[in-house]
Structure formats: structure tokens, C-alpha cells
Write a protein that binds this DNA or RNA. Structure first.
Length: 959
DNA sequence: CCCCCCCC
């Protein structure tokens, strides 16, 4: 039953209770005299705060008072017969105007004034007032049984048997002398409205619960009003959280009939566990047995559920359940009239739900529909033990049945007696893993590890204060508080401080945005107590890192548990702003996180987080920087402009959420692993300081990426896939420099190197199609890129290969036109000079390049299956003037030519792919091709291998 | 109560 309630301070409660008393006079209530039932004997508890409203008290109270034997309910400040019937002889009747109903469980001191309410605080800030009733001052032990036994209704029977429990003697006695009250049986109404206020003025006046119960002089009071469903739940939940969860859905709870008397011993044991030993001693076994027996025999709800169980066991009633309906609004403090609560038979069909509020089947067999708001249901909310509110606040909706607190809070300062006695059952320390939603007797000592504001989307409206807490064992749990409490908890719970926390509730985590994998979230509320500790030895971090290869599965599984990830900071982009006045304005900052296998995933920070990334701090840090990110939302981010296949499919993105926090070089084992691996790599292979941006300064440009050839050659030559090649390359690159990583084509290196040799085994020139750049083979038509009837205009191009050395290693480099400008004269000029046009015969002018030294700018050719990487000459940088005229295919002006022509011969240079190979001219950097670049790339960023095998992909330009 | 993570 979930009822949203507001805290009601005593003063307010007092005021409200007056209204209640009026409503209690309504015939609708008194027509059912059994209304006393639920509170009979063990009842009479005044539930104020628990429901956040006003005391409710049953006719039992009146009866008791009238009887004069026991001071129970006294409604002061409220004119009414009840007050006047309070007999002086009781000596306890009036106590500061409070209502006293309940039962003392004090082992001694039973001369304490009765009628002093106990006030208990629920986790959500509600105040529950419980009072003592049926207290039997020792040595008298008495109880009265109602004299009227006319009621054939089971539930009603119960209610009219006030029970007196004398804990000092251990006796449980029915009080036969207790005058029946409310004996007038109201005509059964087909429909009972709990809120009705009409008619039936004949009903005995019931004194409205009134006085806001105030605690005075009672060190400890409790109430034995037990919601039987709570009893059931107590056990049920213990046995099976699932059952309990189902059981307590929202609003209306379907309750299995399983629990009846069997749960009671459990309850009592549970209850007893909260007493001090000396108190417990007084609660001797006979008493317990008596309680059990009493509840079994007399509690209307026990009967109700027993009836339900019996019904359920009847095979001919297939669709049977009990429904307890939530009571909301002003009706919640109305008097329980338990005799109207029979077995609640519910047909199970949709019509049954809509056509009736509740269908009650009495033992007599007569069905009766009852308004959902009928106060009978309030009886179900009267807790015996769970004085802190099974209901608790609405934030803790998932476990409304779970008692939030067990401790009764007394006001020691005003206590006239027994102030030295411990009146608040103390909680015990529990580790987070030991917490149980059914147990509120624990406190925790935790470090505030993270805190954030949970938001609701769309709109990102703040809904809660949230934090993640760590205990000493390293277990983590999330705690939430209503957004209204944010300021307080934000202040009281400081990051990385340790606190003792008690008085919290439990909830199920939201299915989305789960930060943790566990099934419990703590609920903090108004009465959550926080105490700063000077504790040490708390773990510094809690992560549940996903591996790179797990990300996809998590993504596809729609696993809404947020993801933690760790790796090297690969690169940090600047924050970019998108959108504008007409759309959504958003700031984005992407950070590449690379793992040990050189897989890079994107970590995205949004808006303020994007702005607040500590760029300066990061820049100061020693490389490499390990970055651990937490609670990220996994998604795919399709960068349609990216030439990488993986990005077309959609690169996996770790999108920051409000719960996300990130940590540089966190003190976790993974950081050590990453750093160790990085060091290993450093020892064997020096880091490449790669600059992807073209430098405008010539001198800088010609010195850009001066990576020793020996280093470059260490790059795994077996790499075939573009992506793999990229990651291999990035492995040797300094983090935080590369933002895109299709380096195969893009990264330009420079080196001062000597030409050792010209490869004589390779043609030195070829005829290149002017349209596609493909090789024109002598004697073969090349019509695939020319309209029929047009004449190809082949151009000659160098394609000789040279072996260069920088002193560290030798490398093979292919030289195509026009990138050989500056190295050798134009190919056509040379052709006119040579004696033979045979491309296999290397002209002397080319051989003369041997043993000359130059500044080469070059890039990787497409990795080959075998052998070390080869390179493509991009530019001779000996001479600045020449170079300035050269177009470039560097990263800032990516290669754009998409030459076609099938690679019918792998060793010949028909440049058929956009990828550079040692046999392929690495660019056709004519400016006119640029407009085609983007579209072409979008269509064509497929693997080289696939492209080569699929001629259809190679269409271009002519379209 | 549902809705459920922003960007190119």
C-alpha cells in the first residue's frame, strides 16, 4: 500500500485529529460496529505519523475508557462522551490530552501513565504516534470480553474482545467485563464509503482521536497493532524477495493467503530482538505464546487471511486473491471497521477491478462491495512493530512493507521515569553486503564515494540526490534522497568522508541508469541520521570495469546497468558546441580511451562536464594518463564522416551520465597493469610523437614526425585490416595527439635519408589513366572509366622503388609522379631522353639517385601480407619553394583520389584502391577532385580487401 | 505510474 503522506508534526496532528473525530462520527463507519475489531485488544494504536496524518483509534478505545478499568484512549481537548467517561479511578486516562491506546511492553514500571503516546519517526519524515492501551497495572490482570456476542461476523467478533496483556505476569487474558461498545449494528450497506459523512446519527459518538500524542514520561512504548500482511511479509520477504515484490506492487497489493498464524512467531522473535535482555526477560514465553494465540484467535486480519487461504485452497475458486487497496487522502486516518473486512474475494477479471472497488465476501457468504477508501483498510496499516512505517516515503516504493526503523524514539528529556534506561533499541553495524530490505535494525559506516543529482529524461529534470557509498569491505551501494533533501545531504555527506548512517529505507534501483549491479538502493529521508566518523581504511575506489570486448554485448543486451571503463587517455578533444537557438544546444567533449589492445572507445562528456574537464591539469600530467570512467551509458555513435568502417557502423561510445565520474590514474590494479604494459612498450619501441596536422611552417613541416625507420618498421607487417593497422600505429603514438586514426593513409612522416639503391626489379614508369589513375597496360583497352567513343589520355607516371636508409634501418619506398618532383626531372622529359621505353630498364638518371640524400616526407603504404611495411613518397622536402607548390594528401587535406581498375596483378601499379600501397600512387591530389571526396568516402569506406573484390564499389567520378 | 540519456 503506497500512500503518499506528509510529515505531520504533533501540532498539526492535533488539529487534524479533530477533523478526524468528526469523520469518525459518520454512520458509514459506525454502521459497522465491528469497527473496533482490528484494534481490539492488541490494537488501538494511534497511528498518526505513520500515515502522516492523525491518530486513528477504534471504538475499542471508547469501550475501554468507558469501562473504566483501563485508561486507554482519552480524548482530551475534544468534547465528547468519551472524555467524560474517563473515570478518575483509572488515574491514567488523561494525559496531556493525548490518546492512549496500545500496550506497554515495559517489564516494570507499569504504573507509568497510560495514554502517553510514543512518537516514532519514519524514514520519510512522518511521525507516528503510538499509545499505550490495555495496560494492566500489575498485579491486576484483566481483560474483558465483550458481552455482546451477537455478531456472527468473524471479523467483528474479534474486534469486540479487547485484550489485556499483562507482561508483568505473563498472562494474556480476555477481559470478559469489558463493555461492548458500538453495539449497534448498522444496517449493512451495499456500499460502504469510508468517507461518507451522512446519516446514522444514532451511532454512538466516537471520540475522535485527537490529541496529538505527545511523549511524556514513557521511556518506551510500543504498539501491538499488527498488520497481518506485514507479518506475512516479514516472513515472506525473508524467504523470497520476489514474492514480496510481487506481493506489494503498487496501490493494490495482491496478497497470498499463505501467511497467517505461522508468521506470527517469526514476527515476535523479530520484535523481541529489539529489546534489551532485561526487557526480554519479562517477555516470557507464555506471553509470546499468548500473543500468538491471541492473534490467531482474535485478530481480524489473521482471520481474513486465513479465510483467504482457505478460499485459495478450494479448487473451485481458481481466481482468487486478496487485494488490499491503498487508502489515500483524508480517509486514511479513519477508523478501521474490521468487521467489514472479510475475506476479500477478487474475481481476477478486469471487470472486477473496475466495477467494484473491493468485493468482500463475509463468512456469511454475502458479498459486499466496499469502497476502496473504506477505512477498514486502515486496519491493515496499523503496525504492531513496524512503527516506522512499512509505508515510508514514496521514494522507497519498492519495499513499502519493509520496516524502516525499529527504534522507538523517546524524548529522554521529558521522560519522568526510566530516563536512564535505554529506550532506543540500538542498531547494529552492518556491512553493505549484509543489508536486507526487511531489516532496519542496522546502521552502516560508509564512505561517500560519489554523489550526483539524478535526472529524469527527457528534459534532464533533477529528481533525486544520489550518492554511492562504500563500506570498508569495498562493497558499494547507491543511496537516493528526494530532490527536496538534496541540499541537506549534499551538505551533510561530503565526498570521501566516512559517516555512520542510520534510519534509511530500501528501494529497488531504477531499471535504467543503474549504477550498480545489486538490487538494493538505500533511501535517505528526513530521519536519516548521518554522523561523521574519523574512520580510515576505506577503499578509495569502486569500479566494475567492462572489457572492450564486452561492450558490444552489453550494448546489445540493452543492459541498463551503466558501464565503468578504464584505459589510457588516447586523446582529448576540445569541447565542441552543437545546435543553436532553434534546436538543442549542447556541448560535447570526446575523449578517446585506449585499452591494452589499442582499441579506442569514445568517452563523451556533456555540457558542463565537457567544459569542466581539467584540460590544464591533464596537460601537466605525465604520460600516459590512465582514465577510469564510471557509470557511462553505452551507445553507438555513428560518425558518418569517418572513413573508418567501425565508425560507420557506429563507434561504441561511453556517454557520460549524471552519475558519471572519472578519475585520472586511479589507485586500482588496472592502472598498474596499464602503466606496466605501457612501460614495456616504451622499452622496446620508442613513442612516436606524431603530428597529424599539417604544419604551416616549412621548417617544422619538414621535421614533422621524424620517426626512425627502424621504429616504423617495427609496426606489425602482418596487419591487413585498415582498422588494425590504425591501432597498431596508434600504439606507437603519443596519446592525446591523434584524434582520428586511419593513419594508414594519413600520417605523414619525414626523414632525412639516403637512397641506397633503386630497385631494378621493378618498372620505373607506367601509363596512368587520366581519368582513374589506373595503370594502362599496353595492348589492353581501358574503357571502364571512359565513355564510349572518348579517347583515353594516358599520362606517364614514375613508379620506381628505392631503398632508403636513415641509419637505423632500410626501407622500401615507392615513388610516383608527381611526388617525385624535386627528386628527379619530369617523367615525360626523362622518357624523351632515354633510349628505350621499356619500363623495366631503369634509366641512368634514376640510378643516379643512389647515394643521394634527401628529406623525404612519406607515408605508409597499405600493409602487405608479408615483409616489412613499405612507404610511399609524398614529397621531397629538400627545397621549400618546390614543396610549397605541391598539393598534399596529409591529414588536413586527406587523400581524395579513388582510382579504379582491378588489381589484376598485385605487383603492378594499377592504383585500384583508395589505399596507398607501395605499388600505388598515393594520391591524385588535384583540387577539382575535392568536392567529390566526402560523398565518395562515405560510400566507399569499406575495407580495402572488400573494395578490391567488389568492382561495383569502385565506380566514381563519371556518374 | 508511464516516458528513460543529449552531439555529429
Amino acid at each position: 500500500m503506497r500512500i503518499k503522506r506528509r510529515p505531520v508534526p504533533n501540532r498539526t496532528a492535533r488539529e487534524i485529529s479533530i477533523e478526524v473525530s468528526r469523520s469518525l462520527d459518520t454512520p458509514g463507519l459506525h454502521a459497522h460496529q465491528g469497527s473496533n475489531t482490528l484494534s481490539a485488544g492488541l490494537s488501538g494504536a494511534i497511528d498518526v505519523g505513520h500515515r502522516g496524518t492523525t491518530p486513528v483509534f477504534s471504538p475499542t478505545v471508547s469501550a475501554t475508557v468507558q469501562n473504566g478499568l483501563y485508561p486507554t484512549a482519552v480524548f482530551c481537548d475534544i468534547p465528547g462522551p468519551s472524555s467524560s467517561t474517563d473515570e478518575p479511578g483509572t488515574g491514567h486516562g488523561v494525559n496531556n490530552g493525548s490518546v492512549s491506546v496500545g500496550m506497554s511492553v515495559l517489564p516494570h514500571g507499569l504504573d507509568l501513565p497510560v495514554g502517553v503516546p510514543a512518537q516514532v519517526y519514519t524514514v520519510d519524515g512522518l511521525v507516528s504516534n503510538f499509545e499505550i492501551a490495555n495496560v494492566v497495572p500489575p498485579p491486576s490482570v484483566a481483560a474483558r470480553q465483550r458481552t455482546t456476542a451477537e455478531d456472527s461476523i468473524h471479523a467483528g467478533d474479534v474486534g469486540r474482545v479487547p485484550m489485556v496483556l499483562d507482561f508483568s505476569s505473563g498472562c494474556v487474558v480476555l477481559n470478559p467485563n469489558l463493555a461492548p461498545f458500538n453495539t449497534r449494528r448498522g444496517e449493512r450497506q451495499g456500499r460502504i464509503s469510508g468517507s461518507s459523512s451522512t446519516g446514522d446519527t444514532d451511532s454512538p459518538q466516537v471520540q475522535g482521536p485527537v490529541a496529538p500524542p505527545q511523549r511524556e514520561g514513557w521511556p518506551f512504548v510500543t504498539c501491538l497493532q499488527v498488520p497481518l500482511w506485514s507479518i506475512g511479509l516479514l516472513e515472506d520477504v525473508t524467504k523470497s524477495a520476489n514474492t514480496a515484490g510481487h506481493f506489494l506492487g503498487r496501490g493494490e497489493e495482491e496478497i497470498s493467503a499463505y501467511f497467517c498464524s505461522t508468521a506470527i512467531p517469526t514476527l515476535l522473535r523479530f520484535w523481541l530482538s529489539h529489546f534489551e535482555s532485561h526487557e526480554r526477560r519479562a517477555l516470557r514465553e507464555p506471553i509470546i505464546q499468548g500473543l500468538i494465540g491471541f492473534l490467531n484467535e482474535n485478530n481480524a486480519l489473521v482471520k481474513l487471511f486465513r479465510t483467504a487461504r482457505d478460499k485459495l485452497l478450494q479448487a473451485d475458486i481458481p481466481n482468487f486473491s486478496i487485494r488490499l487497496f491503498g487508502v489515500v487522502g483524508a480517509h486514511q486516518y479513519e477508523l478501521p471497521t474490521a468487521d467489514s473486512v472479510g475475506a476479500i474475494v477478487y474475481d481476477g477479471g478486469p471487470e472486477a477491478v473496475t466495477d467494484y472497488d473491493v468485493v468482500i465476501e463475509r463468512h456469511s457468504g454475502e458479498p459486499e462491495s466496499v469502497n476502496k477508501l473504506h477505512p477498514a483498510y486502515m486496519a491493515l496499516q496499523f503496525p504492531l512493530l513496524f512503527v516506522y512505517g512499512e509505508e515510508a516515503n514514496s521514494d522507497c516504493s519498492a519495499y513499502p512493507h519493509v520496516p524502516r526503523k525499529m527504534a522507538l524514539i523517546t524524548d529522554a528529556g521529558t521522560s519522568s521515569k526510566s530516563t536512564d534506561k535505554a529506550v532506543v533499541p540500538s542498531r547494529q553495524l552492518a556491512y553493505l553486503a549484509e543489508l536486507n530490505p526487511t531489516d532496519n535494525s542496522k546502521f552502516i559506516e560508509v564512505k561517500v564515494y560519489r554523489k550526483w543529482t539524478t535526472v529524469k529524461i527527457p528534459g534532464f529534470v533533477p529528481t533525486a540526490f544520489s550518492c554511492m557509498l562504500l563500506d570498508k569491505k569495498g562493497t558499494a551501494i547507491q543511496a537516493n534522497a528526494d530532490i527536496k533533501e538534496k541540499a541537506r545531504f549534499d551538505h551533510d555527506l561530503q565526498l570521501n568522508c566516512v559517516y555512520k548512517i542510520e534510519g534509511f529505507g530500501f528501494d529497488r534501483p531504477d531499471s535504467w541508469g543503474k549504477t550498480l549491479d545489486n538490487d538494493i538502493t538505500l533511501c535517505f529521508g528526513k530521519y536519516t541520521q548521518v554522523q561523521l566518523l574519523q574512520a580510515k581504511d576505506f577503499p578509495s575506489h569502486y569500479f566494475n570495469f567492462a572489457a572492450f570486448n564486452e561492450l558490444n554485448a552489453r550494448l546489445e543486451k540493452k543492459n541498463l546497468t551503466l558501464t565503468d571503463y578504464i584505459g589510457y587517455v588516447h586523446n582529448v578533444e576540445k569541447a565542441k558546441e552543437y545546435g543553436g537557438a532553434t534546436t538543442t544546444r549542447v556541448k560535447v567533449r570526446n575523449i578517446g580511451i585506449r585499452n591494452l589492445n589499442n582499441n579506442v572507445v569514445l568517452f563523451t562528456l556533456w555540457n558542463e562536464d565537457a567544459d569542466n574537464f581539467p584540460e590544464g591539469e591533464y596537460a601537466e600530467m605525465k604520460q600516459p594518463v590512465i582514465l577510469a570512467v564510471s557509470s557511462c551509458y553505452l551507445k553507438r555513435y555513428a560518425d558518418l564522416d569517418s572513413p573508418l568502417i567501425s565508425e560507420f557502423i557506429g563507434q561504441i561510445q561511453l556517454s557520460a551520465t549524471s552519475a558519471t565520474r572519472y578519475y585520472f590514474n586511479p589507485d586500482v590494479p588496472e592502472t598498474g597493469e596499464l602503466l606496466a604494459a605501457y612501460s614495456d612498450a616504451n622499452m622496446t619501441i620508442p613513442q612516436l610523437d606524431i603530428h597529424t596536422e599539417r604544419l604551416t611552417n616549412w621548417e617544422e613541416e619538414r621535421n614533422r614526425n621524424r620517426v626512425p625507420l627502424a621504429t616504423l618498421l617495427q609496426i606489425d607487417p602482418k596487419t591487413q585490416q585498415v582498422q588494425e593497422a590504425n591501432t597498431i600505429i596508434t600504439k606507437y603514438c603519443q596519446p592525446n595527439i591523434l584524434t582520428k586514426f586511419n593513419f594508414t593513409q594519413r600520417v605523414l612522416f619525414t626523414q632525412d635519408a639516403m637512397i641506397l639503391q633503386v630497385d631494378a626489379g621493378h618498372d620505373w614508369y607506367y601509363q596512368k589513366c587520366d581519368e582513374c589513375g589506373g595503370k594502362l597496360r599496353y595492348g589492353y583497352l581501358h574503357g571502364q572509366c571512359h565513355q564510349y567513343g572518348t579517347t583515353p589520355n594516358p599520362q606517364n607516371s614514375y613508379c620506381f622503388r628505392i631503398v632508403i636508409t636513415d641509419g637505423t634501418a632500410n626501407a622500401l619506398m615507392s615513388c610516383f609522379t608527381p611526388q617525385t618532383d624535386g627528386l628527379i626531372k619530369d617523367v615525360n622529359t626523362l622518357l624523351e631522353e632515354v633510349d628505350t621505353k621499356d619500363p623495366a630498364t631503369i634509366p641512368p638518371a634514376i640510378l643516379a639517385l643512389q647515394n643521394t640524400r634527401h628529406i623525404f616526407q612519406f607515408q605508409f603504404a597499405t600493409p602487405t601480407l608479408k615483409g616489412p611495411p613499405t612507404f610511399i613518397l609524398k614529397k621531397i622536402m629538400d627545397n621549400p619553394q618546390l614543396a610549397l607548390l605541391e598539393p598534399s594528401a596529409g591529414p588536413s587535406s586527406p587523400q581524395t583520389n579513388l582510382p579504379e581498375s582491378p588489381t589484376d596483378e598485385g605487383s603492378t601499379p594499377p592504383p585500384a584502391t583508395p589505399t596507398v600501397t607501395q605499388d600505388t600512387p598515393a594520391g591524385e591530389p588535384t583540387e577539382t577532385q575535392h568536392p567529390l571526396q566526402s560523398a565518395a568516402r562515405k560510400k566507399l569506406f569499406v575495407p580495402t580487401t572488400e573494395e578490391e573484390s567488389n568492382p561495383a564499389l569502385k565506380k566514381h567520378k563519371k556518374d
